[in-house]
Simulated scan of single mutants.
Amino acid sequence: MHGSKKWIACAGACAAALLSACGGGGGDSSNAAALVTPVVQVGGAVDHPSGVSLATLAAKPAVTQTVTFNSGTTPQTHTYTGASLWSILGDAGIQNDASRKNDVLSRYALATGSDGYQVIFTLGELSPDFGNKPSILAYLETVSGLNGPLNSSDGPVRVTAPGDVKGGRYVSNLTRLDVFASAATVPGTGGGVSPSFRVSGAVTAPASFDLAALQALPKSSQTIGSSTYTGVSLWALLNTVGLKLPASVKNPTLSAYAVATGSDGYRAAVSLGEIDPGFGAKGALIAYDVNGAGLGANGVARLVIPGEVKQGRLVSNLIAVEVFVAGSAAN
């Protein structure tokens, strides 16, 4: 879906294009000042909160990507150049709980536009070791073969979401990136085989599911390597209990996320935008069988996410799935 992507070591060329876009060089100090003025604030659970300028972005290894997505029912194609979103978060120093295995997988980044519009990317979705979604902070767009600034309705910086069906997670006029730990509250039970799990949080009818309850729902499958998992789509499961999201918010699923917890306390988060068929459309599965042999020691259910570099977000012996909205207890 996201088409071609290439890495370009062109910090100088990108800075020159930005300077030209700001009104030309020629020693105009106001143009240079525009490049170093912070345009995006990075904060939350990071070691080095800071303001990121266009010059900072242009000094990073540049990524050019051609993306296609729908705006309403109208397809759009854009070629953007920017800096890796993951690298910008990494520069800020993502905080982790060292006592919790792969704690980064239960954290998320909240992207906010100048109009207050917000979307979530989980860090597991973005991490090159796991979901590897190549989102960038775009600051240039190629039109008719020429690089220029983003148009006024999109820029100066826009987050991209390559592979998404619709452009809801392409946050225009980005002003903030904040990292948060999840709001998950269900503790582990000390490990062991789980007979059931409960779905709770921002849902209309919290419910528990054992094997029989899962098997009564529409069946889905995902193949990962030599393993074929059968179970229930996570998106379908959440809609079975009903999502309780704020009606006043545009694209409310995009500012919500789910956290899966195993009996040993291991956690992984999935943004609802990642699995919503209208946006990320990733087929995350609550599996109850693998290769026709059940799950055995892995419990009644496990979270399975296709297309990952590493399956760190595969949560076995599932005991809880909690749904949260940005701005809830974690924030």
Score class of each variant (00 low, 15 high):
T37W: 03
N151P: 15
T204I: 07
L35W: 05
G116A: 05
S221D: 15
G24N: 07
Y257M: 00
S50N: 11
P38N: 01
G299S: 05
L245Y: 10
D178G: 05
Q311R: 11
S194T: 08
I136V: 12
E308S: 08
P38R: 01
T228G: 04
L57A: 11
T81H: 06
L85H: 03
N298Q: 14
K5H: 11
S271Y: 02
F121P: 00
G23T: 06
A247Y: 14
P149Q: 14
L19T: 07
W235P: 08
L254N: 09
A32W: 11
Y139P: 07
L217C: 06
G82Q: 03
A17V: 12
D210V: 12
T122E: 06
M1L: 12
V171R: 03
G155Y: 00
V199P: 09
S135L: 02
P128A: 03
S172H: 12
L238Q: 08
I319M: 04
D115F: 03
S135I: 00
V241W: 13
R302A: 09
G93N: 01
H48A: 14
A202L: 10
V309W: 06
L174M: 01
N173G: 12
S71W: 13
V104E: 09
G327E: 05
L126E: 00
S53W: 00
A15K: 13
S196W: 09
Y288D: 03
A301N: 02
M1F: 13
S182Q: 06
T253K: 13
T77M: 04
G44N: 05
S30T: 15
N173R: 15
T66A: 10
G44W: 04
R198V: 15
G148M: 05
G191S: 12
A15H: 10
S127K: 05
